[in-house]
Design a protein around this nucleic acid. Structure first.
Lengths: 188, 188
DNA sequence: TCCATTATTTGACCTTGGTCAAATGTTCTT
DNA sequence: AAGAACATTTGACCAAGGTCAAATAATGGA
């Protein structure tokens, strides 16, 4: 199945040399160790992180508990969307769940590049659209599926998530408690 | 408080004459009667509806029940986002909750116009960003607030919603049953 | 105005998932 | 290999909100 992310990837590949160069010239590669924070709560998310390898997540604190809102694998773009878009303090953290390598692009540099390279504007739009669609589907799942169904769904479409990530984090990503997740797993 | 939608509106106002004309030339005004469907499930959402007056909503069916996902008032853009963006069948309906007047723009005409008027691309991006931010906040509310808190929140920030819309619809928009909403209201 | 329809409330009971606490498993260190 | 620290499971109980059914409003037509 071709997904929208495939489309974005093929779009990037189809970018003309000049645009691609511009994008590269404002990006740099960086490594993080497992447990490192790429973004902290209350910081403005001034960079986007394209994951080259490893796993990361985004989460916020809700009376002391960490609620995971997104998981990032290779070729995912990690960013606190509202904070990045409006350049205002983030309520979320971004954390490396393993050693990760990312390609970092600064917000302002990308804004500037968009002005001179209109194709980057299209890329930006595609990424925003992709994220919006992803969010709509996540919301839809929460409203139409039980905790068990959501777990089975993730198990089916993204088994790598279950394998590589501690259950506490998966539970919060599914919007349930660790204990409930454990019981769901025991039943199956 | 200045919101992102204010920013979009001011951006539109700041559009140069030529761009504005292009936008107008591909848009047309239309009236719908209360109860009319602007978009049906399984149809491709080939148009966007800018609400000029009246109230509309977007909803889907979940085993027979209507779940409202978005409410539209004056100056809101009604669109089934995934269906519109990917030009694929919609799982949602768009319905007029009162007599409404909308400004309609066809998907393909807008795509064409974006090619010749780059500022429309920026507008498109802003709208997608706005929608993404809105979705993130909605998701956040569902995860961090109880049914009562969500009701009180809507009561505080959008009292017009409570006034003008039947409780069945508000309940489904809040993600709760009609009976629960009724009990919440009784307590306050 | 009176009826039919639709909207809202209330009651009784049930289900899902949460919380708190304790028991096991696992892993990583040193 | 022995702990310390973390991850997972299990048990007992609780609470929010759902469901089904019935009772009351409220409202738009004829």
């Amino acid at each position: 199945m071709t997904t929208y992310i495939d489309k974005i990837n093929s779009y990037i590949k189809a970018l003309d040399n000049d645009t691609l160069k511009a994008l590269e010239s404002i990006s740099s590669t960086k490594n993080y160790k497992k447990g490192d924070l790429l973004l902290r709560q209350n910081e403005v998310c001034g960079k986007s992180y394209w994951v080259l390898s490893g796993i990361a997540r985004k989460y916020y604190l809700n009376d002391g508990k960490e609620i995971t809102t997104e998981l990032y694998f290779e070729d995912d773009l990690a960013v606190s969307f509202e904070s990045y878009t409006l350049q205002q303090p983030s309520r979320e953290f971004i954390e490396a769940l393993s050693d990760v390598t990312v390609s970092i692009t600064h917000y302002q540099a990308f804004q500037n590049a968009k002005a001179t390279h209109p194709k980057l504007l299209i890329l930006d739009l595609m990424l925003a659209e992709y994220h919006g669609i992803w969010l709509e589907n996540r919301l839809f799942q929460f409203h139409t599926m039980s905790a068990t169904e959501r777990y089975l769904d993730i198990l089916k479409r993204s088994p790598h998530i279950i394998q590589s990530i501690p259950l506490t984090i998966i539970a919060s990503y599914l919007g349930i408690s660790l204990e409930t997740l454990s019981r769901i797993r025991a039943k199956i």
